[in-house]
Design a protein around this nucleic acid. Structure first.
Lengths: 211, 211
DNA sequence: TCATTATAGATTATCTATCATAAACGGTTG
DNA sequence: CAACCGTTTATGATAGATAATCTATAATGA
């Protein structure tokens, strides 16, 4: 999904722990003890510490010196923050990606859309959702922007899973997605951008109202 | 400047190396050997590796497994990318900060403006520039957004120092800053936001035309 | 008595030192 | 050009030291 092979031990550990945090298997504020994790992954504490730094940069854990690392807390304000950041950045990315969109890109976007339609579990739906938004902006070829958006998408997924767990809330956004694809096919970039911004803000509003 | 005391060895190393990269003392693509750095800071290689991960997250170095770490390259495309990201995110931050701006906030913004006027070296000017933009958005109280903007400001400073070094280019933006402060004093948030966005894009255009 | 403080022991993070392994680089030679 | 070899280097393991934190118990004072 992400991209790199993660040939290094620290990278593998960071990915595994990160998935647990996003899925909700690791609860907010849960302490992460480096020696336990090292034992679990048959490694020493050195790669674990490196993995912690990586997760810290993704805002998935918080570290306080001499007191170790905990799963980052989940507060309601971050829903709004992440939505606003995503709305602003995805529009920039889409505006830069749109002129470079080929028919094969459009096909990939539509594929993610269909996968969202046929998704049975919320995990499958969220994976398709990530794939859609990623395919939408990937052609912009702005690596730093794409990395930021990947991080925001992961944080967003974490919030979605947490809300699904606590209140059975389930996002429905494929109709929005379909309209965005339609606007792009019609080469109407302005409309696609405004639909995208509205779409992301709508998700935020739904999430906040259901809490 | 940043905020934390950096009581940990890895944090100190990351900060020191980061400053060298931003100032241009460490050239793009220069290899960073962990054992050399460990000797320099009287530490072992373990904290150095943690510092590398932190710098990697800031996009100041690139790491390829089994081949170590190098100073991140400086390419002309990243000027545009960083400017577009900053313009989009700073506007979001300012819009959220504006309603919370007190007179003491405004005084702090003006202080940074004056420091920019009296700056003698480009280092002083850039420090005042960072202080201005930071003071402008800090009251928004969105930690993730502020962290992103800090990273983008650092990347921007690195570009400024590199261009000052290669072509004697020197940014002049205090007039823009003054107009933004004026609009905020008049409680004209929309105008302040549009001035800010235009300001950041103008810097990008100047930079690209002088290269 | 009850609440607060002090203290001792266990746990844990942080870092050092040394070693082992493997990959990459540089040169030489077939 | 390609195969080989030694050096350098990244990566990780292991053992141990230090210091900070936590916990539980004991002591003190109101």
């Amino acid at each position: 999904m992400t991209d790199d092979e993660n040939t290094t031990t620290a990278g593998r550990i960071a990915e595994a722990i990160g998935e647990r945090i996003i899925s909700g298997e690791l609860q907010p504020d849960a302490p992460l003890r480096q020696d336990h994790i090292a034992r679990e992954f048959n490694s020493s504490h050195v790669p674990v510490r490196e993995a912690f730094r990586q997760l810290q940069a993704q805002h998935l854990v918080v570290a306080v010196p001499r007191r170790g690392v905990r799963v980052a807390p989940l507060n309601i304000n971050s829903v709004k923050e992440i939505a606003e950041m995503r709305a602003a950045l995805e529009v920039v990315a889409l505006r830069n990606a749109a002129p470079k969109l080929t028919s094969s890109h459009l096909a990939r976007i539509e594929l993610a859309l269909i996968e969202g339609d046929t998704a049975q579990t919320i995990q499958e739906f969220e994976m398709a959702n990530r794939a859609f938004h990623h395919a939408l902006v990937a052609p912009c070829a702005m690596p730093r922007l794409l990395a930021s958006l990947d991080g925001l998408q992961l944080a967003n997924s974490r919030l979605v899973f947490a809300m699904a767990r606590s209140s059975g809330w389930r996002p429905r956004s494929n109709q929005d997605h379909r309209l965005i694809l339609q606007a792009l096919r019609a080469r109407n970039v302005d409309q696609a951008c405004s639909l995208l911004a509205r779409h992301i803000q709508t998700i935020e509003r739904l999430a906040l109202s259901s809490s």
